[in-house]
Nucleic acid binder design. Structure first.
Lengths: 243, 243
DNA sequence: GAACGAGTAAGAACGCTGTTCAGTAAAGCA
DNA sequence: TGCTTTACTGAACAGCGTTCTTACTCGTTC
């Protein structure tokens, strides 16, 4: 194609690399494409074939860079923690620090459709992610949370966050099939459903139905978080007191 | 076909019912078969075809009784609550009652492989299951938990229970691929893995590693439960005091 | 400069999946 | 006894994750 003897002219030289349209496939590019597919089709529509087509590439090409779909999901899960640094533990501020951690986690999960569902299926015990777990444990332990409590508190927080965001996603998904209803419309539907319950058999449901529906998700998330934090705090002994 | 007046002769009586080898397919029988498959193959191996073959029936026959696989999973989820009655709320005993509820839930989830994973994907807002939610809410509200807290506490408890049992299942599954290792062997492996971490970079992990591994799952489950219960209790005002 | 070897991508294939649909056999009713 | 309704079958469709053989391109070495 090119004359081997001739020097490449400057305009070519500038063009050379971009000329080969075929940008080499990398894990990074595959994960990028996977996120595009995830946002468009959701987790159930995230297939290797769809990711490949997003890259303009054959399916089998992916398997040179990724062992299987499970590993691809794991790589996506790792993205969740990119640049996610937990602060230096401050015993005075541990509750606020934990709240910030939880809110940041939720925000990151919300950045991609069904991301919470992916997260729920993963265990952060890979070498890269252990650092993160370590920092979370540091936060809890320097706060004075007993070791045996701290050992499961991290799990509990993550489970709560994943579960909450996943549930948010379910409601959103369930109602955007046809009309892409807004949250306020969903709320109206829910209120109608709960309001129609026979009052004699469901007095407690009716009593809290409005609260379940009216409050913003942000508020409900923080409230659930507070329940856990108060529970944790109940195990923290005052520093100067008895051991 | 049968003479309504005449008594059925004994030879007929013996042959009649068993003669039609084909026991009619029902939702119940399909769900039964689905549980057999679930226990043998796990959730990932639970396919409509496999369920059909368990019944000695064509796949398409299932679809006369069940809309789709999702509905089958929903029916299996409903089984979880068969005969699961919550006690009459007693304000004095609410913490114990809640613990009993949680332990019973966990035990039921553990009765079938991957049942927790199925449960996580379901919302108990179907007419049959609302009764259960109502009872749970009754427990919380008569205990003095404020409405806005009770409104999310039920969700939180369920999420915790599902998440815990699902995680138990993951460890079990991960290690029974080859040798069907026992829990004690799994523990040994984990201890070795955590023990090999560089102590300067993972001091907190190392400090709690033994606790994460040594304690029984029952203990860890109850401890997590206590965290939530203490959190909830912190919202309960004393009865005689200020409103 | 030519030959080679490693690594990348393509294409077809395998065995599975959930679901649908036209056809058939059996059961219930007149 | 014949007819209608129901219950089931078998084949098919489109899609899935994964593997394997083949083609090709690149950087390196002789």
């Amino acid at each position: 194609m090119t004359e081997p003897d001739m020097p490449t002219p400057p305009w070519e030289r500038a063009r050379r690399r971009p000329a080969r349209v075929r940008v080499p496939l990398t894990r990074e590019r595959i994960v990028d494409a996977a996120f595009v597919v995830l946002d468009q089709e959701g987790l159930d529509g995230l297939s290797m074939r769809r990711v490949a087509s997003e890259l303009g590439v054959a399916v089998s090409a992916l398997y040179a860079h990724v062992d299987n779909k499970g590993e691809l999901l794991e790589l996506m899960y790792h993205r969740l923690f990119d640049g996610f640094e937990l602060p230096e533990p401050d015993p005075e501020l541990w509750q606020e620090q934990l709240k910030d951690f939880a809110r940041e986690s939720r925000a990151r999960l919300q950045r991609h459709r069904d991301m919470a569902r992916i997260s729920m299926g993963q265990v952060p015990f890979t070498p890269e992610l252990l650092r993160h777990v370590e920092r979370l444990l540091a936060l809890l332990r320097t706060a004075g949370v007993p070791d045996r409590v701290a050992a499961i508190a991290g799990d509990m927080l993550s489970t709560y966050i994943d579960g909450f965001v996943a549930e948010e996603g379910v409601w959103q998904e369930r109602y955007q099939g046809e009309d892409t209803k807004s949250w306020s419309e969903i709320r109206e539907d829910m209120k109608e459903y709960f309001g129609a319950l026979p009052p004699d058999r469901f007095p407690n449901m009716l009593a809290v139905a409005n609260l379940m529906v009216d409050e913003t998700n942000d508020y409900r998330f923080d409230l659930g978080l507070d329940i856990i934090l108060r529970g944790l705090a109940s195990y923290v002994k005052e520093p100067p007191d008895a051991s």
